[in-house]
Design a protein around this nucleic acid. Structure first.
Lengths: 144, 144
DNA sequence: GGCTTTCGTTAGCGTAGGTAATGAGATAGT
DNA sequence: ACTATCTCATTACCTACGCTAACGAAAGCC
């Protein structure tokens, strides 16, 4: 980035508002009834990375450690995640997903498909393409 | 939209996660300390539309009426908003922004400029252009 | 071998949303 | 015209999900 135009300013305003509104909708129009968006996100991260300690997960999700503890406890209670002692460092814990989580993610992907189909009706191909392009940039922005 | 590819599915997944993470950051890295993101959003809507009833605002922000009542009360308490009786329908209330809100929005825009400058360092011009393009589409998506 | 640091966790709090119930005013039915 | 229903805003209460502070156990460092 080199320069900030007035348009940029307007864009960031509208981006901010849209992200907040959208997040609100996502939060309670969740495709899976029993899992909060953040829990889903953790499960997704776990699916990508295999396994991680609570601390690592907290950093990745931009959440404080105590919050991650509670999220992991929730997931463990639902049998979606396993907590094993770290082989070398006995302070740490290794969190990894269960086969049940794998199945749930597949099912959730299917449901998301339906949800997506409804949503997609309101967007043109160009708009959709724009979003596909923007997704990784938003990821990057979220991690600053 | 015509068809849903595997890529679309992956994109919506990452979009979802990114929006949630970003919203979390926005929520507490707010540029204006005293106003919540939703309150800012309401003020923005009001700036665009001039004035509206609480019900209309609730629909636009995708929030339930009682929540909007509380938000408006907050804003009124801070002198940023005025509540007048509706001329024809005495059940309704007309909410409109004060001059003070106007000044605050200008100040907030200035602060956002600084925040934006920091943020922009991490993005390339192309990425930024992508976000500018995506902002209105996200707006549309947020309104279904 | 004691001091500091780094984990995960527990305890308690705050914020921002939601649902259910209420009351005043508008609207429709007969 | 009067009652019944419906709508709008509001009040009261509840829940979800994040935070900070405090703590105990394990690791690393003089």
């Amino acid at each position: 980035m080199t320069k900030l135009s007035e348009d940029d300013l307007a864009a960031v305003s509208s981006l901010r508002a849209a992200v907040m509104r959208l997040s609100r909708r996502l939060r309670h129009q969740r495709v899976d009834e029993s899992l909060s968006p953040t829990e889903m996100s953790v499960l997704g991260t776990l699916a990508r990375c295999g396994s991680a300690t609570p601390g690592e997960l907290a950093r990745k999700e931009h959440v404080q450690p105590p919050s991650m503890t509670r999220i992991v406890a929730m997931l463990e209670g639902k049998g979606l995640v396993r907590r094993d002692p770290h082989p070398e460092d006995r302070r740490q814990v290794v969190v990894s997903q269960t086969e049940q989580a794998e199945a749930m993610l597949a099912e959730s992907r299917r449901k998301r498909n339906v949800w997506l189909a409804q949503l997609a009706e309101g967007l043109t191909d160009e708009e959709w393409a724009t979003l596909r392009e923007a997704a990784p940039v938003l990821e990057k922005l979220a991690h600053l």
